[in-house]
Design a protein around this nucleic acid. Structure first.
Lengths: 229, 229
DNA sequence: ATCTTAAACTGATAAATATCATATTTTTAA
DNA sequence: TTAAAAATATGATATTTATCAGTTTAAGAT
């Protein structure tokens, strides 16, 4: 993979595409590439970030620790997404932890490169703004789901989400394998409850499993379940 | 109250303050002021908005209808806040309904005034971006609260939120009176459950009530409850 | 002011979910 | 490869929350 931002395909998926040649060169010259192993943190809740992280490969879970000691996963960030933006823009310490779900490669971009462009290039700022508007809409949807859907519906939805966003492998399992605990943290439930419902889905023929891996067997029924039939 | 945006105090609280004199004049010349009565909608979920609404007076609830027919209130917007921004920026139809909680006065600003400035004035765009970053953080917090806190904790939190954001009247009641149903829609629970818990708080001496009005009697205990004691 | 309607409230019960305890399987690392 | 650790799984039970049915109280309209 080319190590210059100008040539990085990932850029096509995020706001960096709205940068000018010179701005991009500046980013490329100051960025550093990091490898993060599965389970390792990129940053922790409360950290003051000195820049943002552009995900080149792998998936990161963004989560927040609640008073009762459970993590709530708020978002899964994958190839092409930029994480840490919110904190850098608001000039606050981050409200989320970012931990690698599998082995990752990320580019660290110092905040000066970003903030300078934010002040100078309205196209870039607008592009970031549009992304954030989208994230905000998604967050609103999550709030509604959390409060109005049952755990069963939320788990069905999470499984479909994983398929739609990360795809399936050649054996028909979800390409992104989350632990049962991670699933329960996405859905906001007790790990045992998540496991129980996954077993139930298996018994009913909606999914099949192998170890921690999950595959979809009856997508239509899962969709119906989410919609409340 | 002066009807020119340039002189409007409300502007101090929102992104419009980053506009140049000319931009603001343009907004002022194209804006229209509307009065909305308690219970009336400003816009409905799915509407394509032709502009944004700047709240001059009163409070609006932003909510989303869920599959089971219940509204989930995602945000309460008050004096100084601009609503409908997200949809206009993302150029999508709105994902939320806005209904007046009490009599309101709002200024409608056609989207052209906004989008034009978004493309030209990075200070303004950045200011809007910062606001949205803030909203996103709040949304993340709501997600965590929804999934990790009990209904009792969420109701206690809602009461404290109302006090901190809208204050108390001279009799010691919350200045913003929400119906029990609205409270249950903020908290994401059945109306009867909300009522029951409010009664319980009253019995325990945490609050006092008079009709639908609620006053805080023991703030410390409410805070402790939210934090899980 | 009073009639009418809507909102607030209460009880009984059902359903959903969490918790605790423990067995089994899978993964990790020596 | 195998022992240890971690994750998955399941049962029993407690707790929380929703639902249904009904009464009382408050608010709005004539």
């Amino acid at each position: 993979m080319d190590s210059r931002c100008e040539n990085c395909i990932i850029r096509q998926f995020n706001s960096l595409r709205a940068m000018s040649k010179e701005e991009l060169k500046q980013v490329s010259d100051t960025k550093t590439t990091k490898k993060i192993k599965k389970g390792e943190p990129i940053f922790e809740e409360g950290d003051k970030l000195n820049g943002v992280y552009c995900v080149r490969d792998g998936v990161s879970k963004l989560s927040k620790l609640s008073a009762n000691g459970k993590d709530q996963i708020v978002k899964l960030a994958t190839k092409g997404e930029v994480i840490g933006q919110r904190s850098v823009i608001a000039e606050e310490s981050t409200n989320l932890s970012a931990v690698a779900v599998n082995d990752m490669e990320v580019c660290f971009i110092p905040k000066e490169s970003i903030t300078h462009t934010l002040h100078k290039n309205p196209d870039f700022t607008l592009e970031v703004l549009r992304h954030m508007a989208h994230d905000l809409k998604e967050a609103d949807d999550v709030i509604v789901n959390m409060s109005q859907k049952t755990v069963k519906q939320r788990i069905a939805e999470a499984i479909l989400y994983l398929k739609n966003n990360f795809g399936e492998d050649d054996e028909g399992f979800l390409a992104l394998t989350l632990s049962r605990e991670d699933i329960s943290n996405v859905v906001g439930t007790a790990t045992e409850s998540a496991i129980r419902i996954i077993s139930e889905f298996k018994k009913k023929g909606l999914i099949h499993t192998s170890g921690k891996r999950i595959g979809i067997k009856n997508e239509r029924k899962l969709v119906e379940l989410v919609e409340g039939f």
